[in-house]
Design a protein around this nucleic acid. Structure first.
Lengths: 177, 177
DNA sequence: AGTCACTATATAACTACTTATATAGACGTC
DNA sequence: GACGTCTATATAAGTAGTTATATAGTGACT
């Protein structure tokens, strides 16, 4: 389950469940979203596991808020997740969270390794799609072939963008170290 | 549920559940994956709904295969799904399937409308991230800010790629009509 | 005074998805 | 001939995620 990990990452600052959903809407939306009905039970589970603690805070508008804070154990769990690197079968883009929260590891080499791993998997998917596209180009341009070509090209531009990003990321990391 | 719709789209040619999984691995993987344990019940459900029919075919290697075929009603269901356009909250990229299978609608105007809708939603997410990036650029370059910047840029290159694709797709459609 | 929108938490019911396991024939190889 | 791998279908158990609904206070508009 990586929603828990994403929540632990977002808890760099103590926040309520409601706040955390705002975080998903503003910025994090490009790689992950979650409903409140999923966030509240997830926070409760993290609390029982000892990865977060909660304190009730009176609010000027609406009911009192429950503000969650990451514990040492929570930080350890987050670090462990980031160190494992991206899962091969990631239908959701949890690896973006791993990159975003990698600063808690306090070791840029971990970030570099993450990027290298991603580059390999982006690369092989890209190569596969290049072949599929070449195949489609040789077929007579029926409506079906045209639409398949559109779908494949969407994959290609996305992967080309991500590969460019790997390059860019390496440069940023070199400048930083 | 759009796995059913994706399966209906892939059933342009009659195929078995096993074949359909291969399709997810070869090419469709960039926007959707599904395990066999999810595909088999989904096909059964489609059969009860009358959207597909199955015929048992003896196989030279291994056990006999169950080959599924899309019915008229299945085609109607697929067309209806494509006509509704992309869902706003699409954590998985089902809209790529809508583009890929749009040829069954047999009306390029539908494809054009799909692309226009996508361009709007890609655009607004892109604009949001541009603002977030500008914000981060002004902050002192701590490790945390660097990692947030990396995550935001990954989103940006992805969205820039997709916006380029919208342009490209419009041109391809113009040439085709 | 009534309605709407926003902050805030919570749960029930449902749907989707993953992981593990069982079965079974064909083919290759050690 | 024992083992591994590939084709092929299927189900059980568990986890993740969505949709609907309830509750409740605040502020703004009508």
């Amino acid at each position: 389950m990586s929603l828990s990990h994403i929540l632990l990452g977002l808890l760099e600052k103590p926040q309520s469940g409601y706040d955390l959903r705002q975080a998903f809407e503003g910025g994090a939306a490009h790689y992950w979203t979650a409903e409140l009905s999923q966030i509240y039970p997830a926070l409760k589970k993290l609390e029982t596991a000892g990865h977060v603690t909660s304190t009730e805070v009176a609010s000027q508008k609406g009911p009192s808020r429950k503000v969650y804070e990451r514990t040492e154990s929570g930080r350890d769990e987050l670090v462990a997740w980031i160190r494992t690197g991206p899962a091969e079968s990631a239908s959701r883009l949890a690896y973006v969270g791993q990159v975003e929260f990698a600063h808690v590891v306090d070791d840029l080499a971990v970030t570099s390794r993450l990027i290298e791993t991603l580059e390999v998997s982006f690369g092989s998917l890209h190569d596969l799609l290049v072949e599929v596209e070449a195949d489609l180009r040789q077929q007579t341009r029926t409506s079906q072939v045209l639409h398949e070509l559109l779908a494949v090209r969407l994959g290609l531009v996305t992967l080309r963008g991500r590969l460019e990003w790997c390059d860019d990321a390496r440069k940023l990391l070199k400048d930083a170290s």
